[in-house]
Design a protein around this nucleic acid. Sequence first.
DNA 1: CTATTAAGTCAATTCGCTTGACTTAATTAG
DNA 2: CTAATTAAGTCAAGCGAATTGACTTAATAG
Lengths: 400, 400
Amino acid sequence: MHDISPIRAKSGTNQEGTSAHNRRVMIEALRLNGALSRADLARATQLTKQAVSNIIEDLEGDGLVVALNAVRKGRGQPFTPYRLVPEGAFAIGLQIDRHLTRVVVVDLVGKVIARAEAGLPLDEPSAGVDIILGLVDRVRGELAGMFSQSERRLVGLGVAMPGPFGLKNPDNKWMMPAWQQFPLVEALAAGTGLNVGLQNDAAACATAERIVGAAHGVDHAVCLYVGYGIAAGLILNGELYSGGHGNAGEVGMALLSPSGPGSTPLEHRASLASLYQHLGLDPTERGLYEKLGALALAQDPRVMGWVGKAASDLRWSVHLIETIFDPQTVILTSSAPEALARLLLQAMHPLLPSIADRPARRLPRLQLGTTDPWAIAVGAAAEPISRAFDPRFSAILKAG
Amino acid sequence: MHDISPIRAKSGTNQEGTSAHNRRVMIEALRLNGALSRADLARATQLTKQAVSNIIEDLEGDGLVVALNAVRKGRGQPFTPYRLVPEGAFAIGLQIDRHLTRVVVVDLVGKVIARAEAGLPLDEPSAGVDIILGLVDRVRGELAGMFSQSERRLVGLGVAMPGPFGLKNPDNKWMMPAWQQFPLVEALAAGTGLNVGLQNDAAACATAERIVGAAHGVDHAVCLYVGYGIAAGLILNGELYSGGHGNAGEVGMALLSPSGPGSTPLEHRASLASLYQHLGLDPTERGLYEKLGALALAQDPRVMGWVGKAASDLRWSVHLIETIFDPQTVILTSSAPEALARLLLQAMHPLLPSIADRPARRLPRLQLGTTDPWAIAVGAAAEPISRAFDPRFSAILKAG
DNA sequence: CTATTAAGTCAATTCGCTTGACTTAATTAG
DNA sequence: CTAATTAAGTCAAGCGAATTGACTTAATAG
């Protein structure tokens, strides 16, 4: 009947959806709790022992799960714990960051198996894609040399690059306008034959913290990422939240006061770009990372000056994040050297009062996440892993 | 094995979950699209015609759905459209707001069937609960007089009251500290025999906009509610987001600048409380609502002064919301008279630049939602309806 | 008048979870 | 040492909701 406007509806589900969900639930349970017996899994998931047995047998057949030695403990028959098989699945993560690209292969539990990096032309995406495809081929070859069946176990390619996406007029060459226009996902899908997904760098950071870091098993966490720009990755209800158009958390352009057009965007004050400007450094300079690390360790006064100002804005950002999202924890991550990130973290204390300032907290209001420069690429790789193996609503439905 | 720490895992699902989901999908499809034939539903949900037929027959048996006359259109056999039966389910909504309580009964499509209101003692919840129970009994009786089987079709009681909940030290009598401490949900559940859910007033507002208002069928929307305080209701991925502890969106206490403890909370500047203070009015005064409406219509200079200042803060709030959530639209709602809300809306334009300022928008960046004073109670009632009938992840799982 | 298109039903099948009895193997009580 | 108890896990039958594919019905197009 409705032949004019398309009918709006969610898709239904069937036993395939049920089964897919239950498999994912098992995998998540093993990821979060380590090895578990079938009986444990049955209790935890509220499925019957028999259903769990069937699913575990299935997962074992797929090489995703393996039995450990039986354990005698208390009365009753000894139980056989099962754990995830790290080499049961792999994903490739790609970070594109202005002058640099990094590629990693991670396994099912988020461990890095192979990595590669190269420079990248800021303004020539098509040449850049060739470089990227070369790196991908290289790590793929490395992977194949280490594990048989690796190609069959490769679940996808995750891409992280600075957002926001789809801006009307990227006013700044550091926003990589040429890359923003370029049909990157399509080109990479064609060039690699893999499923390709795209997210911004803060989202990747949050995904990384969730698979292997401070947000492991936390359902409500916000990851504040201070890179060349600044953005937040949002874990809400246990899933990454991307907003209506994929730009949720892109707070770099948030204005810092109600007073209108004259006020400053956050990233002009609290980002590494602002630090470079403050110090008069060229962001493309070689050895910059080490230099910053040394300056931070030495508590260089000019660096400390920036830290103080940036921390004031970040402290307030945390206050807003807590007020708006009511998360269990906020995680500060950065592409800066750890020493600098620690200075920032310290300078952010004491935190502003907020609803998060409650007595019975289990997690700290603010904690330091990873400062590993490869974290974004790992998070990029974690996204296809999560898409393939984590329980989520969309996995139950019939179509995307 | 794990007898010390509980095992963290999502619950599994089975055919019951499948069936429950598919029923909900049908109901949502009919809610969003109006009457649809079985064939339409099958296409939209990607289920087979046969599955849809079975489910529809089932829903018809439950009195949730009814067939309309067959329609001839184009080739092929005429189709029989089905629509929701409004009187197929009811829910009661309760708004508790400082000196006043409102109770409504709404039906499956969100229409108000009965309503009642009464004054409420600010500091004596147990006496207040008796008043509330009286109102609930009254509307329940009214409902029973209008529809047979109404008790069986009553799916729950939704409560909305001002948040945030669980503050360390509610410093202000308008935060209703006595009510915050009181075991309200338990008392109401015991007194009514219904399932009781609690949310804050902005969340209720968003829920109302979603079931019958501007957010109908929109998956990413933020509802900015200017009441006695100010807060935001968040619809993310098509569901209300409440945060880790139920306080997401409680932006009233958000500080307005990075500069620390000295800066002002938003609700001191953009809330009806601030307006009353600005005008030297007593918020408990009788006829206040009408008075404000008249002042707004007359564009009273003192009101306009407050409007200008508040609009500046609200404009910036919208900017932040857009930057952080990347929603499809922002909805301004208020418990103030519509004339005043319109003044605010006008004064908020032009909006600040943000990522939402994109060319291909389908919804306005900012729109006016309902200013019906009963909207919060309707939203409160919509929550149990949504919980019972909308497709959602948790409805598929075996346990809550 | 016939072919085509589409809605909807019928009956058999499929597939994953459930049920309840059973087996195995440990610990605890007497 | 034996018997009772507790618990893990299997076996085999059953269930239930969606699927499959053929079929019926009823409209329009040519």
